[in-house]
């Protein structure tokens, strides 16, 4: 057996015991070894559940400590960590919460927001496109250039469709006053980005979030306008498209344009 294969077998066996309970100890592993192994096993679980608690504090607050711990343990079993950084432990956790809290759909939406804020915190820096720079960049546009225009968003920008007023829930949790039903009258959206070094978010109309998501995926401004026209009709769509563009510029979501 090669050195690599010999060590790989030992490490696979050790890791299996770190990640699971009640495996029979291999021959040669005595009780002292088992006691030491227990420390690694407990540390593994504690560290990962704590990482999730740190990343999703408002979700912990909303669902309660016990329910969150059970969900975190489930996530750990179904999606054992594979990334080099503990910061990625929450990847996929909002989706897991969606399955576990199928009757409380605001839970995955709240968790989505916490995860988006977490990732926006360390997203690449990018100087926002000012209104003046936007005007200068588009000054020479011919008519068809507007339809072909691609908007470049700051790397921290993320959007999500939601059925609940997650901003209201977020702020109520901050005040420790969250109770009741936060269902929106009409489906809406969430937009997350970064102002300087601080992640921020706002609720958005469904059309705002969907147009933004479409443009982020690489669609042209003209294609986004078509989406709005399908929903609202051409005249209202044109007015809204201009309004949304102004909002994104004012928020600092854009960093450039290209044709």
């Amino acid at each position: 057996m090669s050195a690599q294969a010999e060590l790989a077998a030992q490490q696979a066996e050790f890791m299996a015991h770190v990640m699971a309970d009640a495996l029979a100890l291999p021959s040669g592993w005595n009780a002292r070894f088992a006691s030491g192994l227990d420390i690694y096993r407990n540390a593994y679980r504690t560290r990962l559940v704590e990482a999730l608690r740190d990343t999703f504090p408002r979700t912990v607050q909303w669902v309660g400590d016990e329910a969150f711990a059970a969900a975190a343990a489930h996530h750990l079993i179904t999606t054992p960590p594979s990334s080099w950084t503990l910061d990625h432990a929450g990847l996929g956790f909002p989706e897991v919460l969606g399955e576990l809290f199928a009757n409380d759909p605001e839970v995955p939406e709240l968790a989505w927001l916490e995860w988006a804020m977490h990732t926006a915190f360390v997203a690449a820096d990018a100087a926002p496109l000012t209104r003046e720079r936007f005007v200068a960049a588009t000054a020479g546009f011919a008519g068809e250039d507007w339809a072909e225009m691609r908007l470049i968003f700051q790397p921290a920008v993320q959007t999500c469709s939601v059925a609940h007023d997650i901003a209201k829930l977020w702020n109520a949790l901050k005040q420790d006053e969250a109770v009741g039903d936060y269902t929106l009258a009409q489906p809406g959206g969430l937009v997350v980005w970064r102002e300087g070094l601080s992640p921020v978010f706002r609720m958005a109309d469904r059309t705002d979030a969907e147009a933004l998501a479409l443009l982020q995926s690489g669609a042209s401004y003209g294609e986004a306008c078509s989406l709005l026209a399908d929903r609202l009709g051409p005249e209202e769509a044109a007015a809204l498209a201009g309004s949304l563009l102004g909002q994104w510029l004012a928020d600092g979501l854009l960093v450039g344009v290209s044709v």
Partner: peptide, 25 residues
């Protein structure tokens, strides 16, 4: 130490066997 196998990361500093094979690796 080692922290991971090819599939999973323990996010812990796990002990090595002190063998000639491990030293080579």
């Amino acid at each position: 130490c080692w922290t991971r196998t090819s599939a999973h990361n323990s996010h812990d500093l796990l002990p090595l066997p002190y063998t000639r094979a491990a030293l080579d690796v």
